[in-house]
Nucleic acid binder design. Structure first.
Length: 129
DNA sequence: CATATGACGACAA
DNA sequence: ATTGTCGCCATAT
């Protein structure tokens, strides 16, 4: 029975990454969020860089809308013109996000969770069908 | 243990 | 608007 005791538990890092990936999955298509914003939602204040790290660790095949995470100033974090930059821009535009002069208008496309909640909260009313 | 690094962010010039 | 600096914090060496 106990021959599985060496099963390694998820490291703190792994659990943190999971929370981050999960938070990113909540960003609606057509919207974007900043690294810091995701960090806060994932319960990691001042953890913007950790979000970047988690994304870099994102396993192939794991479906997470990583393209929706950009810097707080509305820029794509990758070097302009790089392959990754173009891929992200392409995906965002495919969702209707406008990138003008290499930047996204955060006032217009930034995801606002609380506002989003307001639309989900009254679900009880709709759940009744 | 000391440094360096990075898909960040805030701020000063 | 740009650019540089510094703070932040997990990892890598």
């Amino acid at each position: 029975m106990g021959y599985k005791k060496t099963m390694p538990e998820k490291s703190a890092t792994q659990k943190r990454n999971e929370r981050i990936w999960q938070a990113i999955c909540d960003i609606p298509s057509g919207n974007v969020a900043s690294y810091g914003q995701i960090a806060d939602i994932a319960g990691i204040p001042r953890g913007a860089r950790q979000v970047g790290y988690a994304l870099r660790q994102l396993p192939r095949g794991r479906e997470v809308p990583w393209q929706r995470v950009i810097t707080s100033t509305g820029r794509i974090a990758f070097e302009a013109g790089s392959r990754q930059f173009r891929e992200q821009a392409k995906r965002l535009r495919a969702e209707g996000v406008i990138i003008k002069n290499g930047r996204v208008d955060m006032h217009r496309f930034r995801w606002q969770p609380d506002l989003d909640e307001l639309l989900w909260k009254p679900s009880a009313t709709w759940d009744e069908r």
